[in-house]
Simulated scan of single mutants.
Amino acid sequence: MATPEFIRELRSSIGRQLLWLPGVSAVVFDDDGRVLLGKRADTGGWSVIGGIPEPGEQPAETAVREVYEETAVRVVPEGVVLVETMPPTRYPNGDMCQFMDVTLRCRAVGGEAKVNDDESLAVGWFALDALPELEHFSLTRIGKAMEAGPTWFQGMGEELAVP
């Protein structure tokens, strides 16, 4: 994931200390029920598409922008799948970040899936019964996006899901 300029500016003041950031993930389905995934340039692993909102940007806008920037696919956000605070991560350069992820279910409405920036090594559509190896992060989001249920909030149990 490329580091946005506003974060580089913050880092010049705060150094490597923990930085709390919003994140947006998009679980994108096409009309055939396949899910769009990107093979990340930074980890080499397959993942749902996501990124950091620009200052003042709404989560739905972030999802639309990130999916297009990374895959050339146009999407329409359909709903909030989950909200989850992730554990802190220390990056190879020593920076520490903790993300609060808002995951949106999105529907593809145009474009042809292709690598559209330097953040991805590959992109593609995958049938749900033929997914590549994925980390828990992506598997959880895909699973929750497939449910017809309400938004899921990490740590609060299903009893606090909002219809």
Rank of each mutant, 00 (worst) to 15 (best):
D32S: 08
R141G: 12
E54I: 05
E158L: 05
D32H: 12
I7R: 01
S25V: 03
G124L: 10
P55D: 14
V123L: 10
H136S: 07
V102D: 05
E159H: 00
D95W: 10
D42L: 02
G110I: 04
A145M: 11
P55R: 08
A127M: 11
L82Y: 02
D32Q: 14
W152H: 11
V64P: 01
F6V: 13
G33T: 01
V28E: 03
M96P: 00
R65P: 00
R141E: 09
A127K: 15
E61C: 00
S138K: 03
L21N: 14
Y68K: 12
I14F: 04
L160G: 02
L139V: 06
V73P: 04
C97S: 13
T71K: 14
Q154S: 12
I52W: 00
G44S: 04
L21S: 12
P59D: 01
A148M: 00
F99C: 13
E133P: 10
G23C: 07
R74K: 03
G23E: 13
G23S: 11
I142K: 02
P59W: 01
L131K: 05
R8L: 12
V64W: 00
E112L: 09
L19M: 14
D117I: 12
R11F: 02
I7N: 04
V115H: 13
R141Q: 15
W152A: 13
R90I: 07
L37R: 05
L134W: 00
F137S: 14
E84N: 08
G38P: 01
R34F: 07
P22S: 13
L104R: 07
L139Y: 00
G23D: 11
P150L: 11
G51L: 01
V24K: 11
N93Q: 05
L82D: 02
T62R: 04
I49E: 03
L104Q: 13
G50H: 08
L131S: 02
D31Y: 07
M86Y: 02
R16E: 15
P92Y: 07
V35W: 08
E69C: 02
D30S: 00
P77T: 12
V64C: 09
V80K: 06
P92H: 06
M156W: 04
L139W: 01
Q98F: 00
R90P: 01
T89V: 05
L18Q: 07
L128K: 11
V81C: 10
I142C: 08
E135H: 03
V76I: 09
G56Q: 10
D31L: 11
T43N: 04
A2Q: 08
W46E: 11
V24C: 08
W125V: 05
G56L: 08
L121F: 11
K114V: 11
K114G: 10
R8T: 10
G110K: 11
W125T: 07
F153Y: 10
R141M: 09
P88M: 13
R107A: 12
Q154P: 01
P163A: 12
A60M: 08
T103W: 05
A2H: 14
R40G: 00
G124H: 09
W20H: 13
G51S: 03
L128S: 06
T151C: 09
T89N: 07
Q154V: 03
E119G: 03
Y68N: 10
S25K: 09
D117S: 15
I49M: 06
L37T: 02
L160Q: 04
R16N: 15
E78S: 02
T140D: 06
E70Q: 15
E119T: 14
L82K: 11
E70F: 01
T3Q: 06
D95R: 08
G155C: 08
K144E: 14
